[in-house]
Simulated scan of single mutants.
Amino acid sequence: MFQTYEEIKRWRHDTMPSVADDHFQLNAFHDQVMYQTVGIAKTKVESEQGTTPAPFAFFLMGSAGRFEQSVWSDQDHGIVFDGVDQKYFLKLGEEISHGLAIVGYELCEGKVMASNSLWCQSVDSFKEQIVGWLEEASWQSLRNFSILFDSRVLNGDEELLLQLKREAFSVLEKEPHLYARLMENFEFIKKGVGVFGQLLPEQRQGMKGEIHLKETAYFPYVNAIRILALRNGVSAAPTLERLVSLADTHPFVNEYEQDFRKLLDFRLRFRKEATNYEKVHLLPIAQLSKQDKQALKYLIKRGNQLFSKAKSVLKEEGAL
């Protein structure tokens, strides 16, 4: 369909306005843009390096992995392969990262990309990495583990990624004390509503008067459902899919699904005109009507409530 990254970039630019009002259409479009980009990268590397030497999966992480991107997004992705030729797949990862940057996805500042050997490994090596992260249980190693868990395959063999998630579930089943460390890791949530019920704007340079939607409103939902998904062996990455999967064992999550959907819609309604990735999560409070402020405060409080309930569930189950 497309021959160059520049063609995909133009398609992305021309089509984005028509899908920016609908969360599901927008994320399906992001998937198509990235899928086409990966296709060009794969063809280019095969022409230079030869046929792909082993089965592999190119997977998305972060908001892309959870099918929760806004209009702008940076890159979070990896490659898992069934073989030993890391050099080939690192080359593929470099080309994919290069292509996605041209198309409109900023390079990840933390280098969570398939061009980084940490995120481009064989199945066996990744399994060892997962065990190592959980054994170390430092803030950074658990953050890396959580990033990997929020993943889904965009191109390639889905079973390879499932093997990694099964390894994670197996370790956590044997070492339930790790949930306490994970919960500590997830609890770093920026406060969005003050003691007097006011929205709390950012105080950082260049952000004053703005509230960081991702850190204050969005993370409590995502983190709460992620820890429950880990506890219940749910391999799906999207928060909405996790909510559906958890509904039978934890019926209370049903009442938060609509809140999370409203939050996704709220973000699109106010930030679809953002001009870059940095600005897409920052919402000027002055832009909001009184009704909008009330709605946002409600959604923030509900997210914090959900996080508290998830923590209570793990305590009741003896995992904390």
Rank of each mutant, 00 (worst) to 15 (best):
F2P: 07
K9P: 09
P17I: 10
D21E: 14
F24Q: 10
N27A: 07
D31H: 07
Q32D: 12
Q32F: 09
M34V: 12
G39H: 02
E46G: 04
E48V: 10
T52F: 00
P55T: 03
F56S: 08
F58Y: 12
W72L: 04
I79K: 06
V80P: 13
D82L: 06
Q86W: 03
L100K: 00
C120H: 02
Q129P: 00
W133H: 12
S146P: 03
S146L: 15
L154F: 04
G156F: 07
D157F: 14
E159F: 15
L162P: 00
E184M: 02
K190E: 02
V195G: 00
P201K: 01
R204V: 03
M207W: 11
H212V: 07
K214G: 08
Y218M: 08
I227W: 06
L228A: 04
S235C: 10
P238G: 09
A247V: 10
H250F: 12
P251K: 02
Y256H: 08
E257G: 11
D259G: 05
K262M: 14
K262C: 14
Y277N: 11
P284E: 07
S289V: 07
Q294R: 13
Y298T: 15
L299D: 08
G303S: 03
N304C: 06
F307D: 06
K311I: 05
V313M: 09
E317I: 06
